[in-house]
Each structure stands twice: as C-alpha cells, then as structure tokens.
Amino acid sequence: MHKLQIQNLSVTIGEKEILKDLNLEIKSGEIHVIMGPNGVGKSTLSKVIMGDSSYEIKKGDILFDEKSIISLSTDERARLGIYLTFQNPMEIEGVSNVDFLKAAVSSFQKVNLFQFIKELEEKTNILKMDKEMLNRPVNIGFSGGEKKKNEVLGMYMLKPKVVILDEIDSGLDVDSLKIVGENIMAYYEQEKPAILIITHYQRLLDYIKPQKVHILYQGSIIKSGTSQLVTKIEKQGYLPFVTSHE
C-alpha cells in the first residue's frame, strides 16, 4: 500500500501564487479526479508533485509513503514510482523511442533485453501502435493520439505506483480515447496504483471510474465529492461552485 499526501501546499512562480494551502491524499487502489476552469493550477500541481524546479514551494509538504519528497530531484521521485503523463509530451530529436524507454527502464532495474523487447512489442500491440514508432525519434511526427498512447506505453514499461494523468484525453479522437482509457483501467486492475486524473471533460471517465472528484479553483480544492459531481459540473459548469465558494 502506497500513499501520496499533499499537505497545506502553497506554490509560486515568480511573484504569482498558483497553489494555496492545497491538501490531498491518494492511496493505492484509489482514483481521484481534479477538475476546474483553465488557469487554476491543475497542471502546476502535477508538475510540482514531479519536482519541476520552475516552481517554488512556499509552504507545506508532499509526502510519499509518509516521507517528504520535496527535497528529492525529479528523477528520484520518478524512481520512487511516481509517473506523470504530460499534456504536451516533449519531442526529442535523434533519440529513438526504444532507446528512450530502455534508458528509462534501466534507471529502475537492470534490463533483460529479450524480456524488454518482448514486453515492449506486446504493449505496443495492445495500444494499437505501429511498431515502426518504436524506432522513430521520441514523439517526432506523432499525432496527438500517438503521443498520448506513447505516454501510456511508458506507464506500462515503468510500472509506477502513482500515476498522474495531466489531460491525457486532450487531442484524442473517440477511438484513441477508448484505447487510452481502457489501457489505463487495465493497468489499474493489474497493479492497483494510485491514480490522479486532471481533466476538463467527463468523456475519459466513461472508461476510468473515479472514487473521488475534486474541484480546484484559485489554487485550492473548493469541493470534493463522488463521481456524481462530474455530472453536475457537466450540466451546470463551474459557476455555481465558484460563486458559493466566493
């Protein structure tokens, strides 16, 4: 059982405060969703958990299995088992996808090349990705859907304990959304990680069923509830929640 805790977290970039006294706790086997209008700090939260040095933590703490991780570097946090899928995955010139994933897996454990290739091909098939994409430079010339599938492929290969999905559903057509959603759920059934989903829409939640939904506004969680909260947001928008908060 693993646990990620965010305690009274306040974060700034430059002079601007993005997160204010934010609290959140996610355990293995739990799926949480964070929703909210644009620019309220959803992506910032995912990057701060991962240790992006562009942001400054002014107050509070992030704990993984009861130990503070805010002094750890990004790669150390990743090696603890925290995995972030990027909203806009980076394109890396000259580095093939297979070399990239091999280097990533090698940083966790000694790679058995035969097993690695076998697993990579198997997961590529499941994700309905063209095998040729493994030899292409990371994310270069990939469509939006292919980039997101590539993020899920990375998740399969690294087997994280905490998965943070930052708008994994953006740029996906209906078929790709189904593949991505079903594969995340398959990984969840298999490994029971803690999952934090950041999204604007309900459509991903047709495939991934969350236990808790949170609304983030002005850097703080202003309301938490069950998956029924998503239906309310879809119907009413954020305004009623924001107005009652103010």
Binding site: M50, G51, D52, S53, S73, T74, D75, A78, R79, Y83, L84, F86, P89, M90, I92, F100, A103, A104, S107, F108, G154, L158
Partner: peptide, 10 residues
C-alpha cells in the same frame, strides 16, 4: 524535465 520524470538522472 521530461526525461528525468522517466527516472533518468541528469
């Protein structure tokens, strides 16, 4: 940052 988020050291 992207590469380090996959566990690779600098």
């Amino acid at each position: 940052f992207y590469m380090k988020s996959r566990g690779m050291s600098e």
